[in-house]
Design a protein around this nucleic acid. Structure first.
Lengths: 219, 219
DNA sequence: GAAATACTGGCACTGTGTGCCACAATCTAC
DNA sequence: GTAGATTGTGGCACACAGTGCCAGTATTTC
């Protein structure tokens, strides 16, 4: 298993993977990646992503600059290390659709499947990421570009399932799906602290309903 | 009037500006900017934005690297030079809204005002830009980030007009508005060549209607 | 245990982005 | 019309991002 350099490969095997799949190297890769991610996150929070150099992140993570780039494309990628999970999850789940009429619902169903698989996301960490996305221009640009990539995947999958439909239309549907997906997370992280917590699935459901209201002109 | 360095200042005075506002400097600035833009556009088209260096763009435009950065933030900015126009136009037109129920329609009305002002956009040039946005990852990322900026402006304007509404919701509305705006251009540039041409306003109207269908589950 | 494989850091290099300065061109005020 | 003020330009040096390459080290494989 080679470290695929700078391609932001997800090492999401911290969830009870088989012991035979976890060697010294595997574990070391995972820990190093996490260490770099945390260093990037903390420095971006305290000083802003643009003001932090890769050298500083690498030093804080106790790796060289050269190694930093083996794990991540750039600083923003290191900060948003968990985002890759969703990019991959969206491709792994079945998408069942037969016409544009139910395409948005089909994408939302994929989102539900991803959420169902994600046992209990870390609210505090999501809050930190969302705060950065909202307040740091560099992080936001990178996040928005990643959302674009996710939308492209969905569009292409829709095109396979519904050949002959105009791509523009499929892209519009995918955009809507990704917009509500993103807003689901924004809503979930924005809920008041303490008390009864809304689940990510509930947050996403609420956003979907709201989207339909707003488009229909209801309030 | 100082050249505001690298801030992608629009010099959109080529449309019958008063002669007293056009000195040698003003004209030279405008021509230089356009020359850099065209050089960037052509090189990005032929070789891909990432493969082109700023030095090459500058050389093709007969300016120094240092001067390039006085006009544009980076290569992508130079390619998408005309995009700034919409960012500014969105802020200049009145936004009339009283409740979230009609917020999307209000944003669309701003779009209509911008379109009405833009006498006859250059279809060929828009086509070139859209092709690059669709096919060149660097250009696309930059364009998507710019769309995000436009959405932020709209969200903030909505917030001023409707104090007390949740920002998340206003942002969702702004996102929808910008998504349909962008798709209006995609549709307009994607129409078959020759024959009766659909106007940008018609393209935007069609996309808005289609969005409502798709969200409602109609086809 | 030896050989193969993979990870690491250092280095040199190209390219990006910017502050600074001297010089040239244009503008402004008298 | 001219001197002084203002603005645009290019060159330069520098910090930083990003990457190919290589030698050394650690782990895996047979």
């Amino acid at each position: 298993m080679a470290l695929d350099e700078g391609k932001s490969v997800s090492r999401d095997a911290g969830t009870g993977a088989l012991a035979c799949e976890t060697g010294v190297r595997e574990r070391h890769l995972r820990e190093t990646r996490q260490r770099i991610h945390l260093a990037a996150l903390e420095l971006a929070e305290s000083r802003g992503c643009s003001a932090v150099t890769v050298s500083e992140v690498a030093a804080a993570a106790a790796v060289s600059r050269r190694t930093f780039f083996r794990y991540f494309r750039n600083k923003e990628d290191a900060v948003l290390a968990g985002h890759t999970r969703y990019y991959e999850a969206v491709q792994a789940h079945p998408l069942r659709v037969s016409s544009p009429a139910d395409a948005l619902a089909a994408i939302e169903a994929v989102g539900d499947a991803v959420l169902a698989e994600d046992a209990q996301p870390d609210l505090a960490e999501h809050r930190r990421i969302q705060a950065l996305i909202a307040g740091d221009p560099a992080i936001r640009s990178y996040a928005v570009a990643q959302d674009r990539d996710i939308a492209d995947v969905l569009r292409d999958r829709l095109a396979e399932l519904m050949p002959g439909q105009p791509m523009n239309e499929l892209e519009l549907i995918a955009d809507l799906g990704v917009t509500t997906w993103r807003h689901g997370w924004v809503r979930w992280t924005g809920q008041p602290t303490g008390g009864q917590q809304e689940s990510p699935a509930d947050s996403h459901r609420a956003v979907r309903a709201r989207l339909r209201d707003l488009v229909a002109g209801g309030a």
